[in-house]
């Protein structure tokens, strides 16, 4: 029976795969069906996953089996429940309290982490001696890195019109941005094709058994 069910499973997978591909041609009932099943299944998956892997071990389990040591967890539990009060119009305002805690924590952490990782660490990473490169190519590269970073930042400077002399660095900044976007695009092609290969692999190997 197990093998029948696993063959059935492959066929279900094939059905959904082809249904989604059919969207490339045009919208059709198969895609509509697959899309809605996808939404339903994945939303349900998220809920079940959260219950078993976050709420039970981190909250309920601790509260039920070791209440005295975890009394403080009643606060997040209460805040979590308050979040649900949004459903009752007259008590909706209470859901702003947990939201405030969540946002306060998140905002504080983002501020610090972006300050450190994207501001400071990127800043010190650009403080290099360009002449220290081992080869000519590296030295040229280092100069490009410094100039590109500075002009790129200037491109995002909003306090001055981009006119006359002030348009020069900003223009150079755009060149660097464009090169970077082109490079990202080119680099990505590979990844996207891989995904298609993965699906074809499924169709050709698991379903049709054409390839090993």
């Amino acid at each position: 029976m197990v093998s029948t069910m696993s063959v059935l499973g492959t066929w279900i997978g094939v059905f959904f795969t082809l249904s989604i591909f059919s969207f490339l041609f045009k919208d059709n009932p198969f895609y509509k069906f697959a899309e809605q099943v996808f939404i339903g299944l994945s939303a349900g998956y998220g809920l079940i996953y959260l219950i078993y892997n976050v709420l039970i071990p981190n909250l309920f389990h601790k509260l039920i089996f070791d209440f005295s040591h975890n009394v403080i967890l009643l606060i997040p539990a209460t805040l979590g429940l308050m979040m649900l009060l949004r459903l009752i119009p007259s008590l909706q305002w209470l859901s702003k309290y947990p939201l405030a805690v969540v946002i306060g924590t998140a905002v504080g952490i983002s501020m610090l982490r972006y300050m450190q990782s994207d501001f400071l660490n990127q800043l010190t990473a650009t403080m290099i001696n360009p002449l220290a490169g081992a080869t000519k190519v590296e030295i040229v590269g280092n100069f490009l890195l410094i100039i590109g970073t500075i002009c790129g930042i200037y491109f995002f400077y909003f306090s001055r019109k981009k006119e006359g002399i002030y348009s020069v660095p900003s223009r150079i900044g755009i060149w660097f941005l464009m090169i970077s976007f082109g490079a990202s695009f080119g680099y990505t092609v590979m990844a996207r094709v891989s995904l298609l290969i993965g699906r074809l692999d499924f169709l050709l190997k698991d379903w049709l058994h054409i390839i090993k």
Partner: peptide, 8 residues
């Protein structure tokens, strides 16, 4: 709300 899943 649709779903937490990126591609869903």
């Amino acid at each position: 709300y649709l779903t937490d899943d990126q591609f869903g």
